[in-house]
């Protein structure tokens, strides 16, 4: 027995136990808020308001989801966000990938100049106001176009793509096609693109998530409610109880019916918040497992740079 204990403390077993415990605690901490939000979204509104939910759902109701789906702005936001995400990501790919490919070619004269040209913008920029005035001078403020154009090129992603191309598309491959009379454009579309599915996956993921979650650009550049993306409406709903309090205090002469209506929404306010979180994050949850295999590959591609 003593011999066994001694081995336990001296050998790697104790170490393994400590690692396992730390990782387990980590896992619980990462998972808990996610489970909690899901549980709250289907729990009884009274239980949610009273803070009785701790892990699993208390009671069961879908009335929160029903209310969220009745909320018209959410649908407008959804449609706009899908449009911005799809078109924006497409523009991202058209701008980023050809440029990254050209820069990965070692026979490109001046590639170092262009790399510096792009990388400077990672650290130095005009800042918020000059950018705003610039976009205003193009007449793009409060247009849908600005939502898909802005951020068309992420220099970081371009460098990731360049490393991928120079690492996994051998020069000789495209050289052979060139000798056979294939143009650079045809080369890129017919030979390079089919070989870079993993890269496209990573880029769609990086850019797509950025578009889906983007909030600040819309806040700065959009004015019409009909053009707002989901995140702006989301913010409104999530601050709703605060808004209600304000309307209550600003208009003390509300009719009994109005107060009853407000109270009803107030009762469900927290529930609705949890539901709206789930509804807005759902597409990510669905896409996530499908693109997951690309994650590590993508970051590994990026880490090769030097």
């Amino acid at each position: 027995m003593a011999e066994k204990l001694k081995r336990f403390f001296r050998g790697s077993q104790l170490f393994q136990w400590i690692v396992n415990i730390i990782i387990f605690v980590f896992l619980v901490v990462e998972l808990y808020p996610i489970i909690y939000v899901i549980s709250c979204s289907i729990s009884d509104p009274e239980a949610v308001n009273a803070g009785k939910v701790f892990l699993g759902p208390v009671g069961f109701t879908l009335e929160g989801y029903k209310r969220v789906l009745e909320y018209k702005d959410i649908w407008i936001g959804y449609a706009n966000t899908i449009f911005y995400t799809v078109v924006g990501t497409l523009i991202n790919l058209i701008v980023t990938l050809p440029c990254a490919y050209a820069l990965s070619r070692k026979d490109l004269a001046g590639s170092k100049f262009f790399m510096i040209f792009f990388m400077i913008t990672m650290y130095i920029g005009g800042g918020l106001i000059p950018s705003y005035l610039n976009i205003k001078s193009f007449g793009l403020v409060n247009t849908r176009a600005i939502m898909v154009i802005l951020g068309a090129l992420s220099v970081y992603n371009m460098i990731v793509a360049r490393s991928f191309y120079s690492g996994s598309i051998p020069y000789e491959l495209t050289e052979a096609a060139r000798i056979d009379g294939c143009s650079e454009f045809a080369n890129f579309v017919k030979i390079v693109m089919p070989l870079s599915k993993a890269l496209v996956g990573v880029m769609v993921l990086y850019y797509g998530i950025g578009h889906w979650n983007s909030y600040f650009n819309a806040l700065v550049y959009l004015e019409d409610r009909s053009k707002f993306p989901l995140q702006i409406f989301l913010r409104e709903v999530l601050l709703q109880s605060k808004l209600l309090e304000e309307t209550m205090s600003n208009n003390p002469m509300l009719s009994a019916e109005e107060i009853a209506y407000l109270a009803e929404i107030e009762r469900q306010a927290d529930l609705i918040k949890y539901c709206v979180i789930i509804v807005s994050t759902l597409p990510m949850i669905i896409i996530y497992p499908k693109l997951q295999k690309y994650f590590e590959k993508g970051i590994m591609i990026g880490s090769v740079k030097g």
């Binding site: 058209i94 440029c99 920029g125 068309a152």
Partner: peptide
């Protein structure tokens, strides 16, 4: 042709990253 491939990115950077710099 390689420079043409780079054109969209260069144009975007000039118009949306470098042009605002003079606004400083």
């Amino acid at each position: 042709q390689l420079y043409v491939l780079m054109l969209p990115a260069v144009l975007y950077t000039l118009l949306f990253s470098y042009k605002p710099m003079y606004g400083i």
